[in-house]
Structures are given as structure tokens and as C-alpha cells.
Simulated scan of single mutants.
Amino acid sequence: MQREINGRPVIETARGPVLTPCAPGSVLARLGDKWTILVVSMLALSPDAPMRFGAIKRGIPDISQRMLTLTLRNLERDGLVARYYHAEVPPRVEYELTARGRSMLGPLAAFTGWIRDTWQDIETSRRAFDEAEFERSGDGSKSKISL
């Protein structure tokens, strides 16, 4: 029986365990991206009707028009979002999650829930680490530690 950690196969070697890719890095990078998570979450608010670009942008105040366009295009390319173009005057474009996109909502809720519950502890750990680094450097300059 092959060993796994978080769905990722582990190969046991003489030098110790080695993680193998569970998916290409480009997929992992896309799905863990801040804007992807926010766009998917925004589209999840309207499960029964597609959303227009402007409504998505208004719901994510910090996203630029260019970043929203790129994010939606990439999510469409990955099969997570469907785009509907209506040849009207003016043209109307709407977006909605596909079945694959909706299947991401459960794991995404667990992940974002964990972040919501732990981000303050993470910030506290970062401050403590940075203060300890400052003290270790002795002269007040940041020291660099190699891991």
C-alpha cells in the first residue's frame, strides 16, 4: 500500500520519504491564488443565475479590471467557470461556476475557514519570530538564517 499525505503520494527511498506531485504546479498555483478564491467565492453567492462582470468586480473591491479579466479567463480555461456572451447592444457577458467549479466549494470552505480561525495566531507567530530575529542579530540589523 502506497503512503500518502494530503492526497500526495509519498515514495519511500533509502534517503527518506520523497513527495511526488499530486498535480502540476500550475494547477496548484492557480487554485490557491487569492483572486481565484475570491472570484469563485463571489460566483458561489449566485448559484442559480450567472453574474455580470461589473457585479463580480463590485463584490471584490481591491481587484483591478485587468486582474479580474485574467482570473475569469484562466478559470474558464480550467473549466471552473462558464462564460456566456450575449450579442446585444451593448454586449452582455455573464459568468457562472461549472459543476467542476462548484465541486471546489467544499474544500475551499474548509480552507478559508481554517484561515479565518488561525490568521491572527499566524500574525502573532510572525511578530514573535521577527522580534527574535532582531534580538539575535545583536546590532539591530536583520540576520539571515539558512534552513
Rank of each mutant, 00 (worst) to 15 (best):
F134Y: 14
W114E: 15
T124C: 02
W114S: 13
E96P: 00
R102M: 15
Q120D: 13
D130H: 06
T118M: 04
S137W: 09
F111I: 01
A109P: 03
E135Y: 00
T112G: 02
T118K: 08
T118Q: 15
L105E: 06
G106V: 13
T112D: 10
R102Y: 11
E96M: 11
R126N: 03
E135F: 11
M104L: 15
A132G: 02
T124N: 09
T98Y: 15
M104K: 00
G106E: 12
Q120Y: 07
R126L: 14
G101V: 08
R127L: 15
A99L: 10
A99T: 00
A109T: 14
G101R: 09
F134I: 06
R136S: 03
G138F: 01
A132R: 15
E131M: 07
G113S: 07
T98K: 05
E123W: 13
A110T: 10
F129A: 14
D130C: 02
A110R: 12
S137V: 06
F129C: 05
R136H: 05
L97P: 01
F129M: 12
R127M: 12
D121L: 04
D121A: 15
L108T: 04
R127I: 13
A109Y: 10
R102V: 05
R102P: 03
F129W: 07
R136Q: 12
R116L: 01
A110L: 09
E131F: 01
A128F: 12
L97T: 06
G113L: 03
A109I: 00
Y95S: 02
S125E: 04
